[in-house]
Design a protein around this nucleic acid. Structure first.
Length: 540
DNA sequence: TCATCTCACACTTTTGAACAGA
DNA sequence: ATCTGTTCAAAAGTGTGAGATG
């Protein structure tokens, strides 16, 4: 029933039909489509809930909904591990490398700004018939604040506290593995903001801080299942960027202009530039001396801004560009149009997952990111651990059987490390940077997510007020009810209101312990966020 | 004074409704 | 009646640069 509805509304969404629930009012058009989509699915899965038509700030679930058995996905298992077969390749790697060479900057605005380049990946190794969510979040890359001084980024102090990261759910989620593997997956609609009070679901970042996007692939047929799904997480170090409110590095500005079709008007043959030249505010092209982008910052001392803007060889960039934005956007649209054409027989995208060596050190400080070994460890699903340690409902025998069929075969550490790690390095944390490894190439990717029991960066979800918190976490001292016990059910019924105030899955510092104790957590500010807890430097 | 942020602007691309024709 | 392709206006996405802010 549940999946059917999701598929139905997904098909409606793909057909361009509105999924807007009536209670969103005037704010609805500003909500990201994927969030609206998910919200509507939730609302419609509880047709008789009296709260389902109330204001979205109120929890859309009744107490009885908390007593429902969870929608256990086929992949649910208390001992589930990241799937070592899943591979992710960064599609527009060349473009990212070009930006990374100069230190990628991303504009953040109050209303939200798209990323450019966008994170575009191809996925392989998924089960063709299993439903997956593909998600992205952005975490601080380190605990420093930066400033652009003398044409380079330098540390300018300690980082400001990062708000709980929001998890962007790819709008095509959930989709079968065959669908995900059929085409590259683009996160072009992700928007970044510096507005801490943002209610649009954009990812909130601090200006002048460095961030690292992450991709998560979770086998789950619906959004509830994300909580106990196994996170296969991937990080591409060249996608690190500095959030800024205005571009600092002119080379980055020029790369954006040259590669982003929306900025075509600022190219040398664009009308904006032509007008300026006609107005005499800019020297003619023939008088501008181009310099190699590989030249150091000192080569450009005394060069005015216009000259510096032209110092990056645009023709070279475009020729080298792997995905040209003007065409890639069309491709993305076409992909979306044909998404439902699942070709189960199509093989997974073969990906070499090897990166060429870096041609020059990144301008970010510290200077370089070390190679990172991709390794699957013994960490089970975070949510599975939660459920396990809390002695909450266990998966049915059927579910367990299904899991045994879907889960990857046991993989030894040696085989996994050798098969997935192009660099063959040890399990070196990607951050903070290690300057001693400055000549090392980028790692192929950090794959799959390899948190350990002590890893504080494990992704987990809380859903603000959107998801029944029964299986997400409990307030301190609140016993987890037995689903089969009416007494426990009534007990939970009485305390349901308390659950509203504790929508968090776990305490970040202690997973299992937080289930039974720990300080109360504040109510999330962002009602519509699919959010991660406070993030600290990635250690993937 | 300086670094950082905000906003209006002109331009380009994308989107989707309306329409015509098969 | 349905499907496909075209047209066009509106919406959305860009960097710029002046001014505001702390």
């Amino acid at each position: 029933m549940y999946e059917d509805e999701i598929l139905y509304y997904k098909s409606r969404a793909m057909a361009g039909q509105s999924l807007m629930p009536p209670y969103f009012g005037s704010a609805a058009p500003a909500l990201p489509s994927n969030l609206v989509d998910q919200l509507e699915r939730y609302r419609l899965t509880i047709p008789h809930s009296p709260m389902s038509v109330q204001h979205p700030l109120q929890h859309p679930f009744t107490a009885a909904d908390y007593l429902k058995p969870p929608h256990l996905p086929p992949s649910f298992s208390l001992n589930a591990k990241p799937d070592p077969r899943i591979k992710v390749r960064l599609e527009n790697e060349n473009l990212w490398n070009q930006f990374d060479k100069f230190g990628t900057e991303m504009i953040i605005t109050k209303l939200g700004r798209r990323m450019f380049p966008t994170v575009k990946i191809s996925i392989s190794g998924l089960e063709p018939n299993t439903k997956y969510f593909v998600l992205m979040d952005i975490i601080p890359a380190d605990d420093s604040r930066y400033k652009f001084q003398s044409k380079e980024w330098v540390v300018a102090g300690k980082a400001e506290p990062h708000l709980p990261g929001r998890l962007y759910i790819h709008p095509d989620s959930p989709a079968s593995g065959a669908q995900w593997m059929r085409h590259p997956v683009s996160f072009q609609k992700v928007k970044l903001t510096n507005n801490n009070l943002d209610q649009q679901g954009h990812i909130v970042l601090n200006s002048m801080h460095k961030f690292q996007p992450r991709i998560h692939i979770v086998a789950a047929s619906d959004i509830l299942s994300l909580h106990w799904g196994v996170y296969n997480s991937f990080t591409f170090s060249q996608t690190q960027f500095l959030a800024v409110t205005a571009y600092q590095n002119d080379r980055i500005t020029q790369l954006k202009i040259n590669n982003n079709p929306f900025a075509k008007g600022f190219r040398e043959n664009g009308q904006l530039r032509s007008k300026k030249r006609a107005g005499g505010t800019s020297p003619p092209l023939c008088e501008i001396t181009s310099s190699s982008p590989d030249k150091g910052p000192h080569d450009e001392e005394g060069m005015d801004k216009r000259k510096r803007l032209n110092s990056v060889d645009s023709s070279h960039d475009i020729e080298e560009m792997e995905d040209r934005p003007s065409s890639s956007m069309s491709v993305e649209k076409d992909m979306a149009d044909t998404e439902e054409k699942v070709d189960i027989e199509s093989p997974a995208t073969p990906a070499p997952f090897l990166r060429p060596p870096r041609s020059s050190p990144s301008p970010f400080l510290p200077s370089q990111r070390p190679p990172v070994k991709s390794e699957v460890d013994d960490q089970t699903s975070l949510v599975s651990s939660l459920v396990s340690s809390a002695t909450s409902p266990r998966p049915s025998t059927e579910s367990t059987d299904a899991v045994s069929k879907l889960l990857p075969p046991p993989v030894s550490n040696s085989s996994t490390s050798s098969s997935r790690s192009g660099a063959g390095a040890g399990n070196v944390p990607i951050l903070p940077h290690d300057s001693s490894l400055s000549s090392a190439p980028h790692p192929p990717c950090l794959s799959p997510y390899s948190g350990t029991v002590h890893n504080p960066y494990s992704p987990y979800l809380y859903y603000g007020t959107l998801v029944p918190p029964l299986y997400l976490g409990r307030p301190p001292q609140l016993p987890l009810p037995s689903l089969t016990s009416p007494h426990s059910a009534s007990s939970v019924l009485e305390k349901t209101r308390d659950l509203y105030h504790y929508p968090y899955l776990r305490h970040p510092t202690s997973h299992a312990q937080s289930l039974l104790s720990g300080p109360p957590r504040p109510i999330p500010v962002h009602t519509y966020s699919y959010a991660l807890p406070h993030q600290v430097p990635a250690n993937l």
